[in-house]
């Protein structure tokens, strides 16, 4: 029993020391892609891509683009592990009532991919951003 307690204590200590090691903190995806300037560039490119695509622009005709830009930057920042707070509405609330179909959803993903590519993200970085956003699809489609 004493041995077990000793062993547990040592194991716990090792675990805590390992966790506390400051130099091993993994870099967030946000930092890796270039932080604030990159996220802003992606957002500006995305708005640009949307404004030149008539199929998708119709969803944004009544959108306050200044607000969209600000919230989208926050959204990308938070979801890639950046030091931001999201102050916008839920994905469900933002997309509700627009009846976004699958074709338009996937087309918008293509536009976002172009936006990321233009902002200098590598293909693996683009995939990792899509990975964190992908689970939100359920709150956007056919709502």
């Amino acid at each position: 029993m004493v041995n077990l307690v000793k062993a547990s204590f040592i194991a716990l200590s090792v675990f805590l020391v390992a966790c506390a090691a400051p130099n091993k903190a993994p870099q967030s995806l946000y930092d890796e892609i270039g932080g604030k300037p990159t996220v802003e560039a992606i957002t500006d490119n995305f708005i640009d891509e949307i404004s030149f695509n008539k199929d998708i622009y119709r969803y944004f005709e009544k959108t306050n683009i200044t607000r969209f830009r600000e919230k989208f930057i926050e959204h990308l920042c938070v979801n890639t592990g950046g030091p931001c707070t999201y102050t916008g509405d839920t994905m469900l609330k933002v997309h509700q009532g627009q009846k976004i179909n699958e074709t338009d959803f996937n087309l918008t993903v293509d536009l976002l991919v172009s936006a990321m590519k233009r902002a200098g993200l590598t293909y693996p970085q683009q995939n990792r951003v899509l990975k964190v956003l992908a689970p939100m699809r359920g709150e956007m489609l056919y709502k």
């Binding site: 590598t122 293909y123 693996p124 970085q125 995939n127 990792r128 899509l130 990975k131 992908a134």
Partner: peptide, 9 residues
């Protein structure tokens, strides 16, 4: 699996 292998799908 998006980005599963060193960022590749």
């Amino acid at each position: 699996h998006l980005g599963a292998v060193a960022g590749y799908n």
